[in-house]
Amino acid sequence: MNFHAVAPKVYKAVLALDAAARQGLDPVVLELVQIRASQLNRCAYCIEYHTTDARKAGETENRVYQLSAWEDSLLYTAAERAALALTEAVTLLPGGVPDDVYEEAARHFGEEELARLIAVIFTVNVWNRMNVTTRKTPGTE
């Protein structure tokens, strides 16, 4: 299904949410979060899209490769690790977002930035669910 063509108002609303959420966030953190959520949701289209954007934002190949095992890697800053932990908690919702995960993210991101980070996480999850459900694959527009 070409979701954009079939439901253009919904698609445009998600685009607007996405644009509002990403304002003011570090582009590398933004892409790491989007790649990780896309990995968890098994969205091949979004993984390709965001790894390409991450490289454009200056991300290294090695950090992109190790992202699926970020907890065991020494390549990520404390703030990036907090953002990735929050991404996993919000994406998987394993009985809610644990207090310690939220508090660690709040230590590294101001309230407004944290709100935008949370919005980016739930927005990438919307994109992932839209693309996985409609079978959007890399190389398709």
Rank of each mutant, 00 (worst) to 15 (best):
A7E: 02
E111T: 15
Q39D: 01
A54K: 10
E103K: 11
S73M: 09
R55F: 12
T134E: 07
A78T: 07
N41Y: 01
Y76P: 01
K56H: 13
A57W: 02
A89G: 00
D53K: 15
T52H: 08
V64K: 09
A16E: 13
L17H: 10
R42C: 14
V97D: 02
Y49P: 00
T60R: 13
E141I: 13
V14Q: 06
E71R: 15
S38W: 03
E111L: 13
A37F: 00
V132T: 11
E141N: 12
R129L: 05
V28R: 15
L67F: 05
L40N: 03
I35D: 04
W127R: 05
T51A: 06
R129D: 08
G110L: 06
A54Q: 08
A106T: 07
N41G: 01
L32E: 13
A7G: 00
L15R: 12
E61Q: 14
W70V: 05
H4M: 15
D72V: 09
N62S: 12
S38M: 01
T133H: 04
K12M: 09
A106F: 08
K136R: 15
C46P: 03
L75A: 13
N2T: 10
T123N: 15
L25Y: 03
A119C: 03
Y11N: 08
T133N: 04
Q66H: 12
T133F: 11
Y45K: 10
P27W: 10
A85C: 04
L32F: 15
P94S: 09
W70F: 14
Q66K: 06
A7F: 09
T123K: 07
G139H: 09
A21S: 08
C43R: 01
P98E: 11
F109Q: 06
N41Q: 02
E141R: 14
F3T: 10
V28S: 03
S73T: 08
L75G: 06
A21G: 06
L92A: 06
N128V: 03
V28Q: 15
A85W: 04
Y11K: 10
A13N: 04
E104N: 13
A82C: 04
I47F: 06
R129A: 06
V10I: 15
V29F: 06
Q39N: 00
A5F: 02
A89P: 02
R55H: 14
D100Q: 14
E103F: 08
S73D: 09
A85S: 08
A37K: 00
Q34A: 11
E104H: 12
D53H: 15
G96I: 08
K9R: 12
A5T: 04
L86Y: 07
A16F: 03
K12P: 02
L25G: 00
